[in-house]
Each structure stands twice: as structure tokens, then as C-alpha cells.
């Protein structure tokens, strides 16, 4: 196989999915069974949807990254749980409230990064602290809220072709992301500003407006993910979203999106989300403690950075 093919992140992500599946099947026969895979894809979808926002922010460049997605998922889950309180009629309002709140928080992130020129790492980390503190005050650290039964079955029960409804939503998001990035002026502008912000400005791209919007969208995706998380677990607690901060970034990197911005696509990120979820599941099967999983994920991220970070700068 040629090195160019190995260097292609999509090929790499796909191969790692196959390898992890095979490894899982060897360690624990039945790992790759149909219903088991459907379950794993459901978990992948939740990670994949929050990673969609992360991916947009990273492609948009200027060291774009959103560390606040974790707490925004928690916030979305807590808000949705309290709005729904187990009632099917309140599912739509739950999405509205959770998505609206996190969208606005994302916009604040975007304004800070764009107009106050606060480094994204610092801005979104600071926002993480603020939201975390706010959540603790509101919930007093006690799990609260209940998912509506219809939402839980949408996330967990087979809907069509033996697959739960959330997977169709994820597929739809995949198509929409492709359309946004490859068929609209906004998508082209995102790549342009991620590749060279000054050049993008000089062809008339409204860079500042778009950057604020990207952080808003990342918040929105995190909020939606929060609602789906409570649909998956049934109820919500303050730290339910924490793990997604690191995972969403790793999924984006596995998917071939350069942290320098301006490259990559969401299809790769979807594969990245699946590969990472499988890895997590194998590690759980191995009965690795949470610290062991964290360590593995950290190592994976660093290895990926070494692999992709070495790609040469092209001539100007």
C-alpha cells in the first residue's frame, strides 16, 4: 500500500475501526454482533454530533477549539431534563431551551475570541468554569430531571431497519454538514478563513461574523447532544458531559481535521467518532478503570498529532 494512502486520514480511521472491531471480537466473542454494533453506533452518534460543532470551530482556524462543549452538554442535559420532566409533549421545548441556551453561550465564546482576541483555549476554558459553577449552584449537585419516554425509545429502541432513530438523525446531520461545507458560500468561507484569515478578508469574506457564528453552532450542537445524552441515560447530573470535551477533540483529529485549521471534513470526523467509541468499548471490556481510558485517549491524541503534525508546509 502506498504511503499516500496510509497518510489519508479517512483510510486510517476506517482501518482502525476494522482493527478495533476484530480485536474486540477476539477479546470478547460477540463484541461485533449486530445488536451490539447498533448500540455502539448510538453512542458514536452522540459523540459524533457534538464533534460536528467542534469540527467547524477547528476548521475555522486561528487555533480554534472549544473546550466548553463538555459542560454545555451537561447544561443541555440538565435543562432538557427539567423542561421534560418525563413528559413526551415537552420534547420539542426541551430541544429549544437546551439548544438556545448553549447557542448563546457559544456566541459569547465567539465574541470573546473574535473581538477581545482572547485565545480560544483560554476563552472556552474560562467559559467551562463559569458554566460548571452555574450548574452546581442551580442543581446543588443533585441529579435532576427526567427524560421523556418517547425520547428514550428514540435514542435506544430500534425504529427502522433495526436501528434507533438517533442514527438517522446523525446521518441527516452528516449530509447537512457535507452540504454546508461543500456547497455553500459559508462552507467555502470557513475553509478560506481557516487556511489564511487575511486572504479570506481580502476576498470579502465576513470573517468576524462567521467566527462568532461557528462558536455559536458548536454550542448549539453541544446543547442538542445534551438532550440526546439524557435520552440515552434517562436522567442527568452535573458532570454527565465532561468526558466529551477531550473525546470530541480526538474524534476531530482522528477524522483528519488539522488543528491548524482550513482542512478536513465531517465524514472523517464521523469515522473518528465511531473508531473512538469502539476503542472505549474495548477498553471497558478489558475492565480498564476510567484513569486507564483517559490515559489511552491522551496517548492516542498525542500519537495522532505526531503523525499529522509532520506533514510538510506547502510552498507559497
Amino acid at each position: 500500500m502506498s504511503t499516500a494512502l496510509i497518510r489519508n486520514p479517512l483510510v486510517l480511521a476506517f482501518l482502525s475501526i476494522l482493527v478495533i472491531l476484530a480485536a474486540g471480537e477476539i477479546i470478547s466473542p460477540g463484541f461485533a454482533r449486530g445488536d451490539q454494533i447498533s448500540k455502539l453506533l448510538t453512542v458514536s452518534a452522540i459523540l459524533g454530533i457534538v464533534a460536528a460543532g467542534q469540527c467547524l470551530v477547528v476548521i475555522g482556524g486561528r487555533e480554534g477549539i472549544d473546550l466548553s462543549v463538555g459542560v454545555m452538554i451537561s447544561l443541555g442535559a440538565v435543562l432538557a431534563g427539567n423542561v421534560m420532566s418525563g413528559s413526551n409533549g415537552a420534547i420539542a421545548p426541551a430541544f429549544l431551551v437546551a439548544g438556545g441556551a448553549t447557542f448563546l453561550i457559544g456566541i459569547v465564546n465567539g465574541l470573546g475570541v473574535t473581538f477581545l482576541r482572547i485565545p480560544p483555549l483560554v476563552m472556552t476554558l474560562g467559559m467551562t468554569g463559569v458554566v460548571q459553577g452555574g450548574l452546581t449552584v442551580i442543581t446543588r449537585g443533585i441529579p435532576s430531571g427526567n427524560a421523556a419516554p418517547a425520547l428514550m425509545s428514540f435514542v435506544n429502541e430500534p425504529l427502522f431497519l433495526g436501528l434507533p432513530g438517533i442514527l438517522f438523525i446523525w446521518a441527516l446531520i452528516g449530509v447537512l454538514m457535507w452540504f454546508l461545507l461543500r456547497r455553500t458560500d459559508l462552507g467555502y468561507a470557513i475553509y478560506a478563513m481557516g487556511s489564511n484569515e487575511r486572504a479570506a478578508t481580502l476576498v470579502g469574506v465576513p470573517v468576524r461574523f462567521i467566527r462568532v457564528l461557528l462558536y455559536g453552532l458548536s454550542g448549539l450542537f453541544a446543547g442538542i447532544t445534551g438532550v440526546l445524552v439524557i435520552g440515552y441515560t434517562g436522567n442527568s447530573f452535573v458532570s454527565v458531559g465532561d468526558q466529551y470535551m477531550l473525546l470530541s477533540i480526538i474524534a476531530v483529529v482522528i477524522g483528519g481535521v488539522s488543528l491548524n485549521g482550513g482542512t478536513g471534513n465531517y465524514f472523517g470526523v464521523m469515522l473518528g467518532a465511531i473508531a473512538l467509541t469502539l476503542l472505549q468499548s474495548v477498553l471497558t471490556t478489558l475492565q480498564l478503570e476510567s484513569w486507564g481510558r483517559q490515559l489511552t485517549f491522551g496517548v492516542v491524541l498525542v500519537l495522532l498529532m505526531l503523525l499529522y503534525g509532520r506533514s510538510k508546509r506547502q510552498r507559497v
Partner: peptide
């Protein structure tokens, strides 16, 4: 100054 002002490298 095309490297600074015009080129969308990687695209």
C-alpha cells in the same frame, strides 16, 4: 505578497 494576502494553502 501572495503568501500573506492571497494564498489559501492546502485548498
Amino acid at each position: 505578497d501572495r503568501g500573506r494576502d492571497a494564498a489559501l494553502q492546502g485548498r
